[in-house]
Simulated scan of single mutants.
Amino acid sequence: MAEYKISINQLASFSTSSEYKKRAIVKQQKTPPKVLVARYGLAKARIRKAIANYGNIQPILEGIEELKSRTPEKPFDINNKIVSIEAMERFIKMKLPVFLQDNVYEVLKKPKINSFHVSDVEIIVSADLIIKVFIDGQPFLGGVKIHISKGDPFDTHRSKYVTTCLYQYLDLIFESSGEIVLPELCLSVDVFADSITSAPKKLEKVLEDIEMICLEIKKIWPLV
């Protein structure tokens, strides 16, 4: 087990956080709750299904109706229902990138390894989808990471950390297969930012920034 670790969405949040918030993020990653309740699980599952099916919104519509029929009592569950419905309603208005609209693609089985390491820090990717897109008959790989946070939507700057980590992970995982991972196929879908961001074509500067973030995480880790 890695001594230092962080998820890519938390890494993106860390990149622009205050010193206090950075320590809170590292503390949560260092000592995660024993019982972790997945937030917005149904919404994410339906969004994944919609993307996997070429943007077909039927799974989204069914998910909205399913949640509307529920009558949660606990504050957490009530909030989860409200935000999940809004997230799905917002996704319906979003358009998939042109290369997903115009080309055939398939969803691949997720590898057992869901992370990679930078400067001894394990970056947990847990891609929501890994896709193989056929462009002019040639296969290329990419992936999707979904972000649902009404209080902290990602701007383009933070989304690029997510997509660059996604690219780097896929490039390492599929290195031996000889298949090519395209930056433009590595996507951060942020419903509350109304954005679908792809990885930059020039990755070097972002990768340098990610390395500096990981070094900062290592510095804070023993202090929290």
Results as ranks from 00 to 15, higher is better:
49 K>V: 13
130 I>A: 08
190 D>S: 04
106 E>F: 01
219 K>E: 10
115 S>R: 14
170 L>P: 00
52 A>K: 15
207 L>W: 14
173 I>T: 06
112 K>T: 14
43 A>S: 14
141 L>G: 06
23 R>M: 13
17 S>V: 01
215 L>S: 13
75 P>A: 13
9 N>M: 07
7 S>W: 03
3 E>F: 08
171 D>I: 07
191 V>Y: 08
47 I>M: 10
150 K>F: 01
178 G>Q: 08
49 K>L: 15
139 P>Y: 04
29 Q>S: 03
104 V>C: 10
130 I>R: 05
152 D>W: 13
52 A>C: 15
22 K>F: 12
109 K>P: 00
184 E>S: 07
219 K>N: 05
214 C>H: 10
44 K>T: 15
194 D>F: 10
73 E>A: 12
71 T>N: 13
215 L>M: 14
110 K>Y: 12
176 S>P: 03
206 V>E: 02
159 S>R: 00
135 I>A: 01
155 D>A: 00
59 P>K: 01
194 D>R: 10
4 Y>T: 11
159 S>K: 01
74 K>R: 15
159 S>H: 09
173 I>S: 00
107 V>Y: 07
137 G>Q: 07
170 L>A: 04
213 I>W: 00
18 S>I: 15
140 F>K: 00
26 V>D: 07
189 V>H: 10
13 S>L: 01
24 A>I: 09
104 V>Q: 05
191 V>R: 10
31 T>M: 11
184 E>M: 08
224 V>D: 07
75 P>S: 12
177 S>N: 02
196 I>N: 02
115 S>N: 14
106 E>Q: 13
198 S>M: 11
189 V>S: 04
196 I>C: 00
6 I>N: 11
155 D>M: 09
86 E>K: 02
134 F>K: 14
181 V>I: 12
146 I>R: 06
121 V>R: 08
12 A>V: 12
82 I>L: 03
65 E>N: 15
174 F>M: 08
149 S>R: 01
151 G>M: 03
79 N>W: 11
51 I>Y: 02
65 E>L: 14
212 M>G: 08
90 R>L: 08
64 I>K: 04
79 N>F: 02
67 L>T: 02
224 V>R: 03
19 E>K: 10
62 E>Y: 15
36 L>G: 14
92 I>W: 02
102 D>R: 04
120 D>A: 13
178 G>L: 11
89 E>K: 07
146 I>F: 02
187 L>W: 07
20 Y>G: 13
130 I>Q: 01
33 P>M: 02
182 L>T: 05
48 R>W: 06
61 L>Y: 13
117 H>V: 08
183 P>A: 12
7 S>P: 00
49 K>Y: 14
176 S>A: 07
64 I>N: 04
96 L>K: 03
97 P>N: 05
205 K>T: 06
165 C>V: 00
80 N>R: 10
109 K>V: 12
71 T>F: 13
3 E>L: 11
221 W>A: 03
162 V>E: 08
72 P>E: 15
184 E>Y: 08
201 K>H: 12
189 V>F: 02
